[in-house]
């Protein structure tokens, strides 16, 4: 059984990491990062089967692909705190000569990253390729991917969604961060997408909702259920209901903090609301 308290402590710590990273360089994307903290902590600490160290091919382990690369702060924080690279390196986020580029990349050789992302809508196709390579290699491990809900406005996703079920890619769990916000406003204001459940089901996927996407126990339960639904001839979609900016009260329930850094005062408030647990980098 996972120690929920430990996972919650880690979640609080990565929220601090996110705020401090973005504040230091006065740029980056805190909103979506904070909203996905529980998800990242859950899959890296409990859900995925991972090998020691990092090997690009990832044979014999589960793989994760981040499609909405702008939430790099949460990705970097959890990768560092999962042992892929030194936690102190979070200090270099978005700085010149850093491996921690504004958006994730393989180009600088940062362990844990298997594809560049940032230009939206490309991650599901890549995850599909990796999942099909696993099948060809008789590797029964899974491929996980994460996508923004606004990101689904990119057409390539729907090519991938159609392909995944047609080709029975049932070793893939694609999670949609359903925070209902994007840069210019709510997804309903910018381009209403209707029922994503109905859309994914119509495209032949098994769909699972995690209603409390910022509750670590609910995320663990949901992702375990998603895992149990793999291998049954259909790709699995998790609709992860989250609150953008979760854990920092003034950043919550708004698109305003999609890509904006807190100032000194706002940082202090955010850190006050997320007291240091495992130690700052």
């Amino acid at each position: 059984m996972p120690n929920i308290k430990e996972l919650e402590d880690l979640t609080t710590q990565v929220r601090r990491d996110i705020l401090r990273m973005v504040h230091k360089v006065n740029s980056g994307h805190p909103g979506g990062s904070l909203g996905c903290a529980e998800f990242f902590v859950s899959i890296y600490k409990e859900i995925m089967e991972r090998n020691e160290g990092f090997d690009m091919d990832g044979i014999g382990e589960d793989l994760f692909f981040l499609s909405n690369g702008h939430i790099s702060p949460i990705y970097y924080s959890v990768l560092a705190r999962s042992g892929y690279f030194p936690v102190e390196e979070l200090n270099t986020f978005r700085l010149i000569n850093s491996r921690l580029q504004g958006h994730p990349t393989t180009h600088e050789g940062l362990p844990g990253i298997r594809i560049a992302s940032g230009s939206l809508g490309q991650g599901m196709s890549v995850a599909l390729g990796a999942a099909q390579a696993k099948k060809l290699n008789n590797d029964d491990h899974l491929v996980y991917s994460l996508h923004g809900d606004g990101e689904l406005q990119e057409g390539q996703n729907w090519e991938a969604i159609m392909y995944a079920s047609a080709k029975k890619v049932d070793n893939l769990i694609s999670t949609i961060d359903l925070n209902q916000q994007q840069i210019d406003g709510s997804t309903d204001d910018v381009l209403p997408m209707g029922s994503l459940r109905a859309k994914f089901e119509a495209f032949g996927w098994t769909v699972l909702d995690i209603e409390k996407g910022n509750d670590i126990e609910a995320v663990l339960k949901g992702m375990k259920e998603a895992k149990s639904l793999t291998g049954k001839g259909k790709p699995v979609c998790v609709l992860l209901h989250t609150v953008m900016g979760n854990g920092v009260d003034f950043m919550m329930h708004t698109h305003a903090w999609h890509g904006k850094a807190p100032n000194d005062e706002q940082l202090a408030i955010g850190l006050e609301q997320n007291v240091e647990t495992l130690g700052d980098y």
């Binding site: 091919d57 890549v126 599909l128 390729g129 099909q132 390539q156 991938a160």
Partner: peptide, 20 residues
Amino acid sequence: IGIAEANMMGIAAGLTIGGK
């Protein structure tokens, strides 16, 4: 892949991860 070249390029990139 079907008539979906964008998806094809992404899938190709993914297939390299696993040594293809």
